[in-house]
């Protein structure tokens, strides 16, 4: 079994949702993750609030990010166990992030060898 990272991308990270909307998404996200965990396929995960994010670039240039030129923003990453990328994609399809127009989930296999980045 391999591990995959599901990277949740919001098309426009500058959009601010209402607290009520946020709460509904939170609940849906917890149910989604709970479902993966109940299959013993959940490894780890974290949400990433948009506020105050920074990007440290070449020559140590620090910009307020992560928006920069594009508005696309990562809202969270979870790591799952799956037998194939297809199975990981099925997990990704359940993500409540995809309810937002233009949002995506990137599915990436985690490098197997215990090698640094």
């Amino acid at each position: 079994m391999d591990e995959y990272a599901l990277i949740m991308r919001h098309e426009d990270g500058t959009k601010i949702a209402s607290p009520e909307q946020m709460q509904i998404w939170m609940k849906q996200t917890m149910d989604w993750i709970g479902s993966i965990a109940a299959q013993n396929k959940f490894v780890s995960g974290t949400g990433l609030p948009f506020a105050d994010a920074k990007v440290v670039g070449h020559n140590n240039v620090v910009t307020n990010g992560p928006f920069g030129d594009i508005k696309e923003t990562i809202g969270g990453i979870i790591t799952v166990r799956a037998d194939s990328i297809e199975e990981a994609i099925e997990f990704a399809k359940g993500s409540p992030v995809l309810q937002g127009e233009g949002n995506t989930v990137e599915v990436r296999r985690i490098a197997k060898r215990d090698e640094m980045h």
């Binding site: 609940k27 917890m30 149910d31 993750i33 709970g34 965990a37 109940a38 299959q39 013993n40 959940f42 780890s44 995960g45």
Partner: peptide, 25 residues
């Protein structure tokens, strides 16, 4: 209860927690 089982399963999986979570669901 569902919320707590969702969280518990992330910390430590067990078949019984998975089943109880599904019941709460």
């Amino acid at each position: 209860i569902l919320k707590l089982y969702n969280h518990l399963l992330q910390i430590q999986y067990s078949p019984i927690a998975a089943l109880n979570r599904t019941f709460a669901l």
